[in-house]
Simulated scan of single mutants.
Amino acid sequence: MKSVAGKTIVITGSSRGVGADTAKILAGEGANVVVNYRQKAPRANKVVKEIEEAGGKAIAVGADLTDQDSVKAMFDQAVEAFGAVDGVILNASGGMESGMGEDYAMRLNRDAQNDALSVALNYLTDGGRVVFVTSHQAHFIREVETMEAYVDVATSKRAGEDQLTSRVPEMTEQGVDFVVVSGDMIEGTVTATLLNRAQPGALEARREAAGKLLSVNEFAQEIAKMVTADVATGHIELAGGSGDFPADGGAPQPVG
Rank of each mutant, 00 (worst) to 15 (best):
S93A: 15
A192D: 01
V133D: 04
D126Q: 13
V18P: 01
M100H: 08
D76I: 12
S93T: 07
K2I: 14
P42G: 11
A138M: 02
G201V: 06
G211V: 11
H235L: 03
H235F: 11
G56H: 01
R38N: 13
V119A: 13
A41L: 13
G30W: 12
P254C: 06
T134P: 10
Q113R: 10
G183E: 00
G241K: 05
Y37P: 08
A224T: 15
Q137C: 06
A202C: 01
L194F: 00
V176F: 05
G17R: 07
V85E: 08
G188I: 04
A210M: 12
E97H: 07
T191N: 09
V34G: 09
A154Y: 03
Q68D: 15
R129T: 15
L203K: 09
A5D: 09
A63D: 13
K225P: 02
E173I: 00
V79H: 07
G83W: 11
G256H: 04
Q253M: 14
A20M: 08
D152P: 03
V231P: 05
V216F: 01
V71I: 14
F140E: 07
S93N: 11
N91W: 04
A138E: 01
V47A: 08
V179P: 10
I59A: 11
G55L: 12
D21G: 02
T134W: 02
G160W: 03
T66V: 15
S166C: 10
T193W: 01
T146D: 00
F219S: 04
T233D: 14
G183W: 00
G234F: 03
V144A: 04
F75Q: 11
A202D: 02
